[in-house]
Amino acid sequence: MAWLTGLPLAVDLVLGATLLWLAWRALSSPDLFQAVALFIAFGVILGLVWARLDAIDIALAEIPLGAGVTGALLLAALSQLQPAEVDARAAPSATEANEHQAGQPGQTAETADADEAQHKPAVFRALLAAVMGLLLFAALFSLGLVTWQLWEPSSGLTQQVNTHLPESGVEHPVTAVLLNFRGYDTLLEIAVLLLALIGVWSLATASNLGDTTPEPVLAALSRLLAPLMILVAAYLVWVGAHAPGGAFQAGSVLGAAGVLLRLSGWRLPAGAAGWPLRLVLALGVAVFAFIGLAVIGLGEPLLGYPTAWAKHAILVIELAATLSIGAILASLFIGGRP
């Protein structure tokens, strides 16, 4: 990888400019579908940036999660919102067109955002925009200056992580931080995912995805890919112990497999949609918490696995977490309660 760090400044400038341009277009393009597509492209480029920053673990999570799952969720939501948005595209005075112009104070005030413009005079709006622009620029300037100030070599906690790596049960530093040194955060993070699913289920009453007959080609591909993706997920869990990879990356691949299977017409058997599914969804938090608490009985601190079997404890936790994360992500995409 030595030649990568030698890449000229130009590559980073292009990557940075692309990110800013994609984000700006995703946030301002008049068509929502286009906005979502640009946002997914933004996620993929961000994945490249992570790889550029030697953050392979983040790249492996950013592309399936930040671009893939988030993109799929956005598209699924958009297809539900679609009827109104189509109307908006047909009639320029309707919602989306207004929204587009609200961000551009230079355009005529009559057609600008209906909610805002009718209450406040144009001068006031322009003043508000100017003040806000000034504030944002001041904020950007100070943030940039602070970042600049921070720019001197510093190793952070690298030394400490490397010193304690042999006791952690894994050889890959990021996995050691996630599953051992800061395992408490990771446990709660899986709880956040589960919480989001409980929240989504508390809102929805029926499955969000319509039961249209799937495309035969897609169905064929999904049947081919799904087993392969499960294999890849298993590989990612295993490889996480000594190289980039781990439960979250594996879980998102598993979740994507679930989404593909669902799109190709596969349904969970009726008997499995009740408590067996819920058990799988809760498994990650439950196993993690159980092991973390059980060690207290052995005289260890909370979540302090004894070095001798830290490796096995982490593997069990990661397997359970992968299953849960995959199931939660697929369920989030499908939306309604099964």
Binding site: Q160, H164, Y184, P301, L302, G304, Y305
Partner: peptide
């Protein structure tokens, strides 16, 4: 938590 202690652990 985990016996590591700050700044490495929580």
């Amino acid at each position: 938590v985990g016996g590591w202690g700050a700044p490495l652990g929580i």
